[in-house]
Write a protein that binds this DNA or RNA. Structure first.
Lengths: 194, 194
DNA sequence: TCGACCATGTAACACGTTACATGATTGA
DNA sequence: TCAATCATGTAACGTGTTACATGGTCGA
């Protein structure tokens, strides 16, 4: 139940900014919420139908003939806006994430040290790049006209990403240094423990 | 395919440390990998059966009568150990996580500023507590006997959690200050935009 | 006219959680 | 003897991804 509403929350939220087609909705989610959220077409379209049945969004057909036209524009109804506020007010708990890098790293003694270094280097580079993108994003947002209303909150989500990326980069660098110091750094040496 | 192997990887990895029952396996995953991984019983038992059929793990019955005995102990076979190395060597890509707090925060202008402050305060407190737990964990690991082999890698995963928690706490504090400064800090004031 | 992109939807499948049914062992 | 904990497994459900089928529009 808490889970079901997550997609609805994202969809209602996105439509609260502007009415759009399902296709564009998905694109906006990728573009704007992309660094902390994701939805696939397979979720967006069914969600829109469900929300329509519940009277939370309205479909405006661009044209009436056959299937495959210039797109249905969905807009929030008053009930939908109310529902959005309700969902936002509901309690939520962050799920323990699954981090594939850490899972592998935990069993790092089973693999070639060079591979472990590759993992960490990739993580480092990725995190550094993410940092830069967040800085650019921040600059963009500060230039935007609607800064006073939504801008602050958007900025906060970017800042969260920035902090996380910075931390990840720092960690990866430290980890590389620590492995170097621990002496596992020289040459491939797969273990034969136990 | 990449996904299916994730659970197998976790199970094989855990069994590479020590043979155990499904129940204990799950408990170890919660305890030891808990800050970056999770598996439910509903996944662990089927995974064990699958792995057994594939000859990657062996089941040792504690006792032969009826169902519900003192438990089946599973141990890695040679093939299982090989498979673990294979899985570890396979490429992987970290999925975009879904952060329910950031999703809500992004639409924060729709809700009472006091609620937003609650969200951030909870995030701050939670992250600070996590930091402390990570520090304790580090101390524990450094005292352990098998530090030389697995210890380093375990330490790295703890350090990753520590960095992430620290970053989250810093971010939450900054966010609270920023909202305070932005003047949204005084009294409930739900928006009536658009 | 052709490819890129906009657009809609579904079906199959993979992944994961929760709840339930069942029973043994152990220590208070 | 009673509760807690160890232990096994499944069934139902919900969530989420991928691939496919289909067609419109628009600019090169």
């Amino acid at each position: 139940m808490a889970r079901t509403s997550q997609t609805q929350l994202a969809v209602l939220g996105a439509l609260s900014i502007e009415p759009m087609t399902g296709y564009r909705l998905r694109a906006e989610i990728v573009q704007t919420l992309g660094h902390f959220w994701r939805e696939s077409f397979g979720q967006v379209y069914p969600a829109l139908s469900t929300l329509e049945e519940a009277g939370l969004v309205e479909r405006e057909r661009g044209d009436e003939r056959a299937t495959g036209r210039s797109g249905n524009v969905f807009r929030l109804t008053a009930a939908g806006r109310e529902r959005l506020r309700e969902l936002l007010a509901e309690p939520f708990q962050p799920p323990t994430p699954r981090d594939p890098l850490l899972l592998r790293l935990f069993f790092g003694h089973h693999v070639d040290p060079a591979l472990v270094r590759t993992w960490l280097t990739e993580a480092l580079v990725g995190a550094e790049r993410a940092c830069e993108r967040y800085d650019e994003l921040r600059a963009e947002i500060e230039r935007e006209p609607d800064f006073a209303t939504r801008g602050v909150f958007r900025l906060l989500t970017v800042s969260a990403g920035r902090h996380a990326a910075r931390a990840r980069a720092d960690w990866a660098r430290e980890a590389l240094e620590l492995l170097e110091a621990a002496g596992g750094g020289r040459g491939p040496r797969a273990d034969r423990d136990r």
